[in-house]
Design a protein around this nucleic acid. Structure first.
Lengths: 350, 350
DNA sequence: ATAATTGGTTAAATCGATTTAGGCGATTAT
DNA sequence: ATAATCGCCTAAATCGATTTAACCAATTAT
């Protein structure tokens, strides 16, 4: 277990000071007037000895770790897994490493994870928060700690944020379902109920229905618990089934809900779109080849990642501008067969 | 931007030495005979000042960062996303943070990521490697660096490893397809071709076919490139289609291949299982509710995570045993409708 | 009565890098 | 001829924790 070569070893082996070696490594050789010849010798010796800097020591000294933190509710959720992948690629291309944490929508867990990451001196955070208010993030903002809120946003937040137009997505969904003949649609949501994305999607949906001359009771729509999601959805559908009260349309508020809804409707013997139409928020690869394929409101995942990363890098490398930045990206309605009530002749895309 | 409270601040504010504060924080107070009263005062003041230790400095000094690294080919692949989630939970419950890196099957990228994580002094690595040989890992092993190979394994490897019985999975798949009437099945694989999991699955499949009196050319089965996977699969299926040479059964070597195969078979108008039967390696939530539902060889993801984590922790907290540990976990054949050639009356599970 | 032990504590070294503040000899400016 | 400048390099401080080696007074052992 040969102990690691240190910068001091390199310096000693060349009979020069650590300063020179450090400067050369960091490309500050010319700027500090280290002779070309010395620089060459240093680099040569570094190769010979196979020296690599201890990043921990470096980060400790400089206060910059080249590490970013990503906080989401569940990294195994397809939407967040994709997001993580995009962000990881962006981070890697800038020399950053990404630490991802799943909160399971537990506020307490989220807070501890953020604190842990801060104690580890990550250079920045990208957060899809489960919290109820902007308090903690406003504090981060005032401390000048680089971070970006994504996906979920807050009233009165100071932090830079990137989200999509959830309200509009819900609105479009409602218009589409109404156009396809839905009369008494149901919303399938998920707890906790303060999550901004879900609230906005539902509100937009209600507004769209209203404009289409329909009504839905926003307060009391179904909200499955985060833990035991599938079981709750199955139970709800069974209850509808047993009481012969199945709605004629369902709008599911995220991809997991859509997935489980479809699975259990199928299990109960319902055929979509003939007996009821269904559409969801969030796209996923498989929604394009299930039978029926599923109509969704899709989020521009790559763009969310790119914008959030860019806003984060701005904070890290420059002093942030004074104005609050909240980028709201457009969503896209992808019509597929699950809502093709009349003539199922829609082409399967790509 | 109030600068962070340090251990020295706490010590000074109490008029005592840093040593005492450090010992108390680390629960070594009793062991070093710090009086109960002093310990109480220290803890109280830490709360008052809201002091939290700089984990970077701590890790720098102790050489233990309480960080683990996970290397996989693509975190957005459902199998790895699930694995990551399980490992993250285990790690978190033991006070560890997880850094995940995606390699895109690029050996060069994998090597750099491992080196980076080592320079960051992660306490251990869990690696699903894309490399060709055990060389780098045998070196890690000899240096005593804690790590576990998962999923993919090597000949002559010294490192602890956890994998599944890929050969047996392939074998069972072949028997099943043969039993369902397949006569000339095709394998849909993916590059690079040295990946042990894929090799073993294909070899087991060939052996199973042989035992069922069938034959397949192992050398020349289809291997799609990792980049552009979907397009390659689509093209291959189209080629079959155009030449009226569609096989009567397809065995897909991982969940992504299965997904894309199904999607494009559907696009080309083939009905499964009537015109051809299909089964894949790896389960995924949606395979249980696509139509048809998909027969798969499922891996025990949670167990893989648990065993790998356990082997890693053993190395970190104790001196590893001398014997090479390679745990091989069983796979499970889940029969669904995509291979139900005769009577599609199989119950949809759960 | 002197030495050894114990209880409670501290000063200083240490981890491996970066950064500050100069040093020294040779050249250029005045 | 003296001072200022320049080119090249170094010693030492520093980041914030942990850990080693002792210290001092009070008690116990011999």
């Amino acid at each position: 277990m040969n102990k690691k070569i240190t910068l001091a070893d390199v310096a000693k082996s060349l009979g020069i000071s650590k300063t020179v070696v450090s400067l050369v490594i960091n490309g500050k050789g010319d700027h500090h007037g280290i002779s070309k010849e010395t620089q060459r010798r240093v680099r040569e010796r570094i190769d010979e000895l196979n020296y690599t800097p201890n990043q921990l020591a470096r980060g400790f000294r400089t206060g910059r770790t080249h590490t970013l933190g990503l906080i989401v509710s569940d990294i195994s959720n397809h939407f967040y897994a994709q997001l993580a992948r995009y962000i990881e690629d962006l981070a890697w291309s800038c020399g950053y490493t990404l630490v991802t944490c799943s909160t399971d929508e537990k506020i307490e867990k989220e807070v501890r994870q953020i604190e842990l990451l801060l104690d580890r001196k990550v250079d920045g955070l990208i957060i899809s928060s489960s919290q109820q208010s902007a308090g903690m993030f406003n504090r981060l903002f005032e401390q000048g700690k680089a971070h970006v809120l994504i996906d979920r946003v807050f009233d009165n937040m100071l932090s830079p944020a990137v989200s999509v137009d959830n309200y509009e997505g819900g609105y479009q969904a409602a218009l589409h379902l109404a156009a396809q003949g839905a009369v008494s649609p149901a919303i399938f949501g998920i707890g906790p109920e303060h999550i901004s994305t879900l609230v906005h999607r539902a509100e937009g949906f209600a507004a769209g229905l209203r404009d289409a001359g329909l009504y839905i009771d926003l307060q009391n729509h179904f909200k499955a618990p985060f833990d035991g999601l599938e079981e709750a959805i199955a139970a709800r559908l069974e209850a509808y089934h047993n009481t012969h009260a199945m709605p004629d349309a369902i709008f599911t508020l995220n991809n997991n809900i859509t997935t489980f809804c479809l699975k259990h409707l199928q299990r109960l013997g319902y055929s979509v779109p003939e007996q009821l139409i269904l559409m969801g928020f969030d796209d996923a690869a498989w929604f394009a080849f299930t039978r029926p394929t599923v109509t969704v409101v899709a989020q521009p995942v790559a763009v969310i990642a790119e914008r959030a990363f860019s806003l984060l890098m701005q904070q890290i490398s420059a002093t942030p501008s004074g104005t609050q930045v909240h980028e709201v990206l457009p969503v896209a309605l992808i019509k597929r067969l699950s809502t093709a009530r009349s003539a199922p002749v829609l082409a399967i895309e790509d």
